[in-house]
């Protein structure tokens, strides 16, 4: 891999920006196109790019598979947990307005933010998980299953 000098330098420069762009997409979702799903994919893409350039092992040490596994669950938890929180506050499931009973719309903002974060986490982790799973398979001889 060492021979791809230009790729390595350029990608090292790019990857942080990709990640930041992911968060931009995430948080700008209320105002323009975007949201947790797209952001998650972009975030995962940044790690995948890293893995493609620097090798899977490097990527795995940067983002360990156990985190990925945890992230998957956490994503769903964050989303579902928001709903459970609204339950505990006495509203219906995912009724964000109960967060701030005085200004329902503020509550909605918080809620949307939280669940979008959950989506981001879940999507990014799952994308990475799939990539790790395929990338780590020993290459078989053709014809074997």
């Amino acid at each position: 891999m060492n021979e791809h000098g230009i790729l390595r330098v350029v990608s090292k420069l790019l990857i942080p920006f990709i990640a930041i762009f992911a968060f931009y997409v995430q948080f700008h979702g209320d105002y323009g196109p975007g949201g947790g799903f797209q952001a998650g994919v972009i975030l995962a893409a940044s790690v995948i790019l890293y893995a493609l350039i620097f090798g899977l092992e490097a990527a795995k040490s940067a983002v360990p598979p156990s985190w990925v596994r945890f992230g998957m669950a956490m994503g769903v938890f964050l989303y579902g947990g928001t709903g459970v929180a609204t339950w505990l506050l006495g509203g219906e499931f995912l009724n964000y307005s109960v967060f701030t009973p005085d200004h329902p719309s503020h509550g909605q903002h918080y809620g949307i933010l939280l669940v979008e974060l959950g989506v981001l986490l879940a999507v990014a982790s799952v994308m990475l998980a799939i990539f790790y799973a395929f990338g780590s398979r020993p290459v078989n001889h053709p014809g074997e299953d």
């Binding site: 596994r69 998957m72 938890f77 579902g80």
Partner: peptide, 13 residues
């Protein structure tokens, strides 16, 4: 519906 979904997510960890 929500309870098994959340529990299912928990199983991953």
């Amino acid at each position: 519906v929500v309870l098994p979904l959340l529990a299912g997510a928990a199983m991953a960890v």
